[in-house]
Each structure stands twice: as C-alpha cells, then as structure tokens.
Simulated scan of single mutants.
Amino acid sequence: MMMGLDDDSARTEPERTGKTGETMSEDPQGGAIDGTAIMMAAAKASVPASVVPYLLDAAQEHLAEHALEYVREFECVYADEELAIFFVPLGHWDTQGLDMDFSPREVDAVRRAHAEHLRRLGTDTDRRDEFETALEIREVAVIGRR
C-alpha cells in the first residue's frame, strides 16, 4: 500500500500490495468498519473516500496480527462472530499509524472510522452514551474475525 505521504496530498490510486508484499484485493473491504462510518471518517479527516477502505484494510491486517495482545491487554467492550471492539489508550492510533507508515491525515481517518463504528453500534445497542463518555478518555480498535 502507498501509505505515509509526507505532504498529506490526496491519493488517487493506492498500490495493491500489503506490508508483507502479498497482493491485496482489488475490492477493498474497509476492515471491519461499516460503510457509513467510512464515509463519515473520510469527510472529517480530509482523506478521499476511495482511499479510506484501503487504509482500513491495512489497519485490519495489522490489528489481526496482534489480536491476542489486544485480548490480553485491553478491555473488550463488544464482541460477536464478526468482530471484537477494544478500548485502547489515547494515542494508540498515532503509534499504530507510525508502524503502518500512515500520514497524520490517514491516521486520523482510521481513528475516526473506528470511533464512528463504535458510535453506530452504541446507537444500535442502546449504549451510545456509555461509548461517547469512554471515547473522551480512550480510543477504540475494531478487529474483524475473518
């Protein structure tokens, strides 16, 4: 993937290989994040909506590689057969973004997409206020179970 532009300029055509060199899907999935959360994150982070699913796929790959660490170290606030959601410390996405060579805007898009996914889930499960309060002092990581 073509991550981490120094000048935050918009990307139009991401490369089709992951960190480990494998060919990535021509049709990005957006990790475990729903489409509405992706669109909202793209708009708020000033990253093209066409790029955000690629960023989220790369983040999903990175998170999946460390899933056992998340289970051991962080609070799981929701889990089902498709995904698990963890509260992580503030600054989590800044650190992970460095590991994935994302630019600051790309990190912001990923952070916003994960948070928005949690908010939408909170609305669906009548836990929105609880999640909003938690997001004031923590970030969130959504890990798909594919």
Rank of each mutant, 00 (worst) to 15 (best):
G30C: 09
M100S: 10
I85D: 04
D94T: 15
A115V: 00
F86H: 15
M3S: 14
S25W: 03
R138I: 03
D6S: 12
A64Q: 14
Y78L: 04
G18L: 03
A141K: 01
E81M: 11
E13H: 14
D124C: 02
Y70A: 00
K44C: 13
A32H: 09
A37Q: 04
H62R: 08
V51D: 10
E13L: 07
I85A: 05
G91N: 12
S103D: 12
S50C: 03
E15Q: 00
V51P: 07
V52Q: 05
P14H: 02
V51S: 08
R72A: 15
M40T: 01
A134E: 08
V47E: 07
V52W: 03
V142W: 05
D57T: 09
L68M: 03
M2D: 06
T20D: 13
M40A: 04
T12M: 10
A32N: 05
Y54I: 05
I38G: 04
E26W: 01
L121Q: 03
P28S: 03
G30F: 12
G144Y: 14
D99V: 07
D57E: 13
M2C: 04
I143N: 06
V140K: 03
A10P: 13
D80W: 13
T36S: 14
H62L: 06
T95K: 11
I137Y: 12
L63S: 10
R138W: 05
L118K: 01
G30E: 11
D7G: 10
V140C: 12
D7K: 08
Y54W: 15
V107L: 09
G122C: 00
R111T: 02
E22K: 02
A79M: 05
R128M: 09
F102P: 00
T125D: 03
S25T: 14
A42L: 00
V52N: 04
E132L: 14
E139K: 02
